Amino acid sequence: MISILFVFVLFAAFILFYINKLTDSLCIQKEIPEDKHAKIFRTINILVTILLISSFVEILYT
């Protein structure tokens, strides 16, 4: 249980870091105004976090 949690937390941190990197590239490429960046990052981070939590719960109970 603890090893699964440890591996999943490392995996989740990597995923969140990479998604944020891709989001930053998207904002730069599409020339999105700076005042909207925070809202975009917040929305994407919340959605990815929900996805990661639901994935962890699915792995835990299968």
Rank of each mutant, 00 (worst) to 15 (best):
A12C: 10
V48K: 00
V57P: 00
F14R: 14
K39G: 08
V57N: 06
I40T: 01
V9F: 11
S55V: 12
S54P: 05
I19M: 04
L22E: 15
D24C: 11
L51D: 02
I53W: 03
T49Y: 07
K30N: 12
I53A: 11
S55K: 01
N20S: 11
L16P: 02
I40G: 02
S54F: 07
I40L: 08
Q29I: 11
L47K: 07
I46S: 06
K21M: 12
L52W: 01
A13I: 03
F41R: 04
S55F: 11
I15G: 05
Y18K: 08
I59C: 07
N45I: 01
I40N: 00
L10H: 09
P33T: 02
I50Q: 08
I59H: 03
I44T: 02
R42I: 04
I32T: 06
A12T: 04
L51Y: 06
F14E: 13
D35K: 12
K21G: 09
Q29C: 09
L16C: 03
K21S: 13
H37A: 08
S55G: 14
F11C: 07
D35Q: 13
I40M: 03
Q29Y: 15
Y18T: 14
F56P: 01
V9A: 13
I15P: 05
I44A: 00
S25P: 04
V57H: 05
Y18L: 15
L52F: 03
S55Y: 08
Y18H: 11
E31K: 12
K36W: 06
R42G: 08
L16R: 01
N45E: 02
E31Q: 11
D24I: 10
R42M: 10
D35C: 08
F56L: 15
F17R: 13
L26R: 13
N20K: 09
I53D: 05
A13K: 07
K39S: 09
S25H: 13
P33N: 03
C27Q: 11
F11M: 07
K39M: 05
I53P: 05
T49V: 06
A38M: 09
R42T: 08
S25D: 15
V48M: 00
K39H: 07
T43V: 05
K39P: 00
P33I: 04
A13E: 13
Y18V: 11
F14G: 14
E58W: 10
L47Q: 07
D24N: 15
